[in-house]
């Protein structure tokens, strides 16, 4: 998307320095991604706050204390945490222009992400079977909304990861695609850090 005139102007114009494309020398895409993530902080902040406000408002036997399955959630948290590692490995591979490993690690990351989402769906069905529907209580609504939003973010991330793998396979090898991978990486890590917050605030701290 840095598709524009700037490149033209500086690359082909009378730019003596030659190397940097933008005023700050930073990539437009990366700047945009960080801005987006800054903005997302307020989105998740609002959802977490809503949950914090309402987490105690549930019927006697359908609260966090009865429902949480800490070992299970810990396992899926671990999966998501490790996906951050594989994502980083994909980014460093992309920096080395090592397409094979990039694709490999991206695929692994996507798999881990999908595993996490599957775990979440499983968890939701368990809760649902125990009687916790979306509209059962304020606690359940705000819990499902918060974790649901996060789950959608992870799902979008998985789709993006797989799309990038597809793009990598189609394009010329050796070409520098590191920024593309890095962008997806930033998004992916953000999804991970949101879960770090959710895991502690929602699951570990008793209501």
């Amino acid at each position: 998307m840095a598709d524009t005139a700037v490149h033209a102007a500086t690359d082909h114009g009378h730019d003596d320095h030659g190397t940097h494309h933008t005023t700050t020398g930073l990539s437009n895409n990366k700047l945009a991604m960080w801005l987006f993530l800054g903005s997302e902080c307020l989105l998740f902040g609002g959802l977490i706050s809503t949950y914090m406000l309402y987490r105690g408002r549930h019927s006697e036997n359908l609260g966090p204390d009865q429902l949480w399955d800490i070992p299970f959630t810990s396992a899926s948290s671990f999966v998501l945490l490790m996906s951050s590692l594989t994502m980083v490995l994909a980014v460093t591979a992309a920096k080395r222009r090592d397409d094979r490993n990039t694709s490999l690690w991206l695929t692994v990351t996507a798999m881990l992400g999908a595993l996490f989402v599957a775990g979440q769906i499983y968890e939701f069905t368990v809760f649902y079977r125990e009687g916790l529907g979306f509209t059962t209580s304020l606690f359940s609504s705000s819990f499902y909304t918060l974790t649901g939003f996060h789950g959608v973010h992870v799902t979008v991330g998985v789709i993006m990861l797989l799309s990038v793998v597809g793009i990598l396979m189609k394009r010329r090898t050796g070409e520098d695609k590191s920024e593309l991978v890095e962008m997806v990486g930033l998004y992916w890590h953000f999804v991970d850090i949101v879960w770090i917050l959710i895991f502690t605030l929602v699951y570990l701290i008793p209501a």
Partner: peptide, 18 residues
């Protein structure tokens, strides 16, 4: 999405002026 829109041809004056 943002990342994918980078021009296919990078650097150099080979890009046709359009």
């Amino acid at each position: 999405m943002a990342l994918i829109e980078r021009p296919a041809t990078r650097d150099g004056g080979l890009v046709p002026a359009v």
